[in-house]
């Protein structure tokens, strides 16, 4: 059952921001609805107003330039990410991570903005975006700010977003040619499932980064390592960044072991 709420679908960005300002904590932005409507159905969230972001041009579309890198509208769906030629070619990790989310039906709806704003520790675009050094553009009637993805997540399902703010775009800096990447997601079945553990690694000539999902209150990324860092060094850095818990999906012990397994598996494949 969904409780009663009103649905608003502004067409202009400024209207959206005004509505957000007006309804503030009573409002939720609606993108694909694949997280929000589930929360509402379970009664864990009871907003009075849903404001649809999907009709706002500034929230849609994917742009790329060699100078500014990739800019992904918050309302871009997983399928749009997976199918976009530039994303596939230059940010294959992102396309891959988008393809890890849910089922075909879900990926047709689920958006990058929704995935990041839900800020679940298991968000598949979370650890991959961290590894890619993403930054998040937050907009409100008060203005715009851009913050590193790393600072965006603040706790389990908590972010820097203020009540009147929306994520408009996510930026990814250009990754130098020759960069390598890999991602492993541990699931309980082969069909669609949330990550029990996920590890994403990217390596350029400058740095090596490892991001981990489902092993801390938020998706995390370890401090940059030198590109030739050993499995041991990467593992140490990763273990320092995480603090998994025992829950219904897995034990802390198993998660720790799998993070190590994944690093040991991914790293050699990057050479």
């Amino acid at each position: 059952m969904l409780h009663e709420f009103s649905y608003l679908a502004p067409r202009e960005r400024k209207d959206l921001l005004q509505l957000l300002k007006k309804h503030s904590s009573q409002a939720r932005l609606l993108a694909g609805g694949t997280d929000l409507l589930c929360e509402i159905r379970l009664g864990t969230d009871r907003p009075e107003v849903l404001i649809d972001v999907k009709n706002i041009a500034e929230f849609r579309g994917i742009a790329f330039s060699e100078q500014d890198g990739l800019a992904v509208g918050a309302a871009v769906t997983c399928v749009e990410l997976m199918e976009h030629p530039v994303v596939r070619k230059r940010f294959p990790l992102l396309a891959h991570a988008a393809g890890q989310i849910g089922s075909a039906q879900l990926r047709n709806r689920a958006t990058i903005g929704g995935n990041l704003c839900t800020a679940s520790p298991c968000a598949d675009l979370g650890c991959s975006s961290l590894v890619l050094g993403a930054r998040v553009e937050l907009v409100s009637a008060r203005g715009t700010r851009v913050i590193p993805m790393k600072d965006f997540f603040t706790g389990v399902k908590a972010t820097q977003l203020k009540d009147d703010e929306a994520v408009q775009r996510v930026f990814y800096p250009v990754v130098a040619a020759g960069a390598k990447w890999g991602m492993e997601k541990l699931k309980r079945i082969k069909g669609h499932d949330l990550a029990v553990v996920s590890v994403a690694i990217a390596r350029t000539t400058q740095w090596l980064r490892v991001g981990i999902g489902s092993c801390a209150p938020t998706p995390v990324v370890a401090a940059d390592l030198p590109p030739n860092a050993s499995v041991k060094a990467v593992t140490e850095a990763a273990l320092k960044a995480i603090d998994p818990i025992d829950d219904v999906r897995a034990s802390r012990e198993f998660r720790l072991a799998m993070v190590q397994e994944f690093i040991a598996k991914l790293l050699p494949a990057l050479s």
Partner: peptide
């Protein structure tokens, strides 16, 4: 399930499959 998991509610919306339990009717105007 009503929760996007099972696909029993799958319909094609504007050429793409969706779980209709997780789409609001006003969204499909």
């Amino acid at each position: 399930c009503g929760a996007g998991e099972c696909g029993a509610c799958t319909v094609i919306l504007n050429g793409k499959t969706v779980n209709s339990c997780l789409v609001l009717a006003p969204e499909v105007d």
